[in-house]
Write a protein that binds this DNA or RNA. Structure first.
Lengths: 145, 145
DNA sequence: TTAATATCCTACTAAATAAGTAGGATTTAT
DNA sequence: ATAAATCCTACTTATTTAGTAGGATATTAA
């Protein structure tokens, strides 16, 4: 399961992508339209800004906007920022590798299967962009990445 | 990430599958060989017994054994018993469905992608058995189930 | 220059989950 | 009878999740 924080982040970014081009988007608009607690959302958006996904403008007429083209922001990047590893085992994570300590990694019987799960998952999350999710989402039979 | 409890369960079941046919397997042997805290493992194995994966024999010469052929025990079943849903969103879970409450499910922009992830994940976890993991694990290009 | 409106920041809290531990009760083989 | 197992309940400790509270700071516009 992804955390609610991560789900809120995805919903907020999709919302911002949709309204992009014009101006910045207000936290309060997103909170209202997507049913996300405002203060909680604030900290999520600030986190995304710290991670170079968003830029922000303070004060009246302030708000948030994407730093990049929504076609080039992939879901996996957001998920890693919000929840950390995508993999199901620490020893199989590409971006947050940790040994399992209690087990002998060379002879681990479950590692291979979870590498396989990771790869299939990343094929999807690593090739789907914010722009894709604002279109009618269609499963790609052979993902580009 | 799966929980350590779940990882321990998988390791223990693989261990039991390997030694199956002969007699029951002791909690203490598994704990020793797989570096799992014994008391914690006890509760895991009892849980698996309550869920009809194992049967147990009490007293001297007791222990645990599989109730079914290891070729017919799929990893997904164990993961659901130990950790609950496999899906990344409650509203996308096949076995633990829950609405997301704050969002309008019909118009949810992220649901489709996570259904896709779920399906790819289940293709693997639902077609890999304990027996498979005791062999050299090889990625199946076109899973049977 | 002042008021309104945003984001920014730190700290706190409450509930749930994870990862066990403790201490025996019960059952079975020898 | 005794040793060796599983069985059972309750407790603990740490971490994570999902927020809330209360302002400080910056910006725009009247």
């Amino acid at each position: 399961m992804i955390s609610k924080k991560c789900k809120y982040a995805l919903k907020a970014l999709i919302y911002i992508s949709k309204n992009n081009g014009d101006e910045t988007v207000l936290t309060s608009s997103i909170a209202r339209d997507e049913n996300i607690p405002r203060k909680f959302l604030e900290s999520i958006l600030r986190n995304l800004r710290n991670n170079k996904i968003l830029h922000s403008k303070r004060g009246k007429k302030g708000g948030f906007a994407l730093l990049r083209d929504p076609k080039e922001i992939y879901i996996v990047e957001i998920m890693r920022i919000m929840d950390g590893p995508v993999a199901m085992l620490p020893c199989v994570s590409l971006n947050y590798y940790k040994s399992c300590e209690e087990c002998d990694e060379k002879n681990c019987k479950i590692k291979g299967m979870f590498e396989n799960v990771r790869d299939k998952t990343l094929e999807i999350l690593g090739s789907t962009s914010l722009h894709d999710l604002n279109q009618q989402y269609n499963q790609k039979e052979a993902p580009l990445v």
